[in-house]
Amino acid sequence: MHDIATFVAVAQYASFTRAAEQLGTSKSNVGKAVRRLEDRLGTRLFQRTTRAVRLTEDGETYLEAARAALDGLGEAEVALAARRLAPTGRVRLDVPVGFGRLLLPYFGPFRERYPQVTFDLSLNDRQSDPVGEGWDIVVRIGELPPEGDMTVRKLCTLRLGLYASAAYLGRREPIRAVQDLWNQDAVIFRSASGRLRPWSVLDAGRPAEISPKAPLIVADGRAMIDAAINGLGIAQIFDRVAQPHILSGELQRVLPEADVDGPPVHALIPLGRRMPAKTRVVLDHLAEIFRTPVG
């Protein structure tokens, strides 16, 4: 491509000397570049005399194509530079099921602000491989092991609370203290390891774990929420995940003084030379969402 640009400069100035001056090189280098191009094409591009440098017929044909090619490359470079500066393109986002449903209402306002950014959204509760699976951003709940090939940004710290439907609470005895929970139906979560997750609570200000009887055990965060909404028992849910269902009246808080601090939420971004603008604005948007206090 350097030889083609040199050829165009010689044709523009009709002079090897002036082309060399404009390109910041020597007349000898300009001559060598043109000769290399002529050898590759198998034709003469210039008629050279002691007084003038003129294009041959083949040279005129090649000049038209060369200028079009260089113009096209220039336009592509401008477009690529604009993409680096302006948020444009698809962002692949992997988030836990409950959080994905929480984030969906915020995508509309984001798209109004950044219409050139689109999403490839995966909702699942497994531990995905951010680099191997090609995700731009992975949201994870819990403490993270050191990962040298990832940028990690903390989004928030969750709280764990107990929630149930009004229908369930209406047919059971009032719950006034932690000991009353032992007589309740629990919707218990089974982790990927197969372990049943007990409830972590504060009992008179002291941390405690309890495992009430569980008519229903689930291994899916969304299923646990749906079970509680449908009156199957009390579930321990992250505050931010439960909040929309509190506002809609589908769930009610149970024994708020027993709430405990939960795990942190992080965004993981594969390392690179520079974070693309599309990824940066989505990450900032996520951080803004999670900065909003839970009512």
Rank of each mutant, 00 (worst) to 15 (best):
F189H: 10
D185I: 12
I225K: 00
D220C: 10
S211W: 13
V187K: 01
R171M: 11
I237S: 01
I188S: 05
Y168H: 03
G231S: 06
A177M: 06
L216D: 01
E173A: 15
L232R: 10
A235Q: 02
A204S: 15
L216A: 05
S191D: 15
E209R: 09
D185V: 06
V178S: 06
A204Q: 15
G205W: 15
I237W: 09
P174K: 08
L196I: 06
R222T: 07
V241T: 08
L181C: 03
I237L: 13
R222M: 12
R190D: 02
W199E: 01
P212Y: 09
G205R: 10
A186R: 07
L196Y: 02
A219S: 15
R195L: 06
A242E: 00
Q179W: 15
A186Q: 11
A235K: 00
K213V: 11
A228S: 04
Q179R: 15
G170Y: 05
S191C: 07
G194V: 02
R222C: 12
P207N: 02
S200I: 02
N230C: 12
L181I: 00
A219E: 11
A208E: 10
P174F: 03
L181E: 01
R197I: 08
I175D: 07
G194W: 07
A167W: 14
I175H: 14
R190Q: 09
P215I: 07
L216M: 13
Q179L: 09
V187C: 04
K213R: 07
R171Q: 11
R171V: 14
M224N: 13
R176E: 11
K213Y: 09
M224W: 14
D203Y: 11
V201C: 04
L169C: 02
E209T: 04
V218T: 10
D239I: 10
P174R: 09
D203N: 13
Q236A: 03
M224R: 07
A204I: 12
I237K: 02
A167R: 12
L169R: 05
V218P: 01
G221Y: 13
G221H: 13
I225N: 01
V241M: 05
P198Q: 01
W199M: 04
R240K: 14
I234C: 02
A208T: 11
S193P: 05
A204F: 08
Q179F: 10
G233K: 03
V187G: 01
Q184Y: 06
S193Q: 15
I234Q: 05
A167M: 08
R190P: 08
R190H: 05
S211D: 12
A177V: 06
P215Y: 04
R240Q: 14
P207W: 05
P207R: 00
P212T: 07
L169P: 08
D203P: 04
Y168D: 08
A186W: 01
P198M: 00
I229P: 00
D203Q: 04
L232F: 06
G205V: 12
F238V: 10
R176H: 09
A204V: 09
D203A: 12
L196V: 14
I210A: 05
S191V: 11
Q179P: 05
I234R: 13
D239V: 10
L202Q: 14
D180Y: 12
R240L: 11
R172W: 03
A167I: 07
Q179K: 14
S191I: 02
R197L: 13
R190F: 07
R222Y: 12
A219W: 14
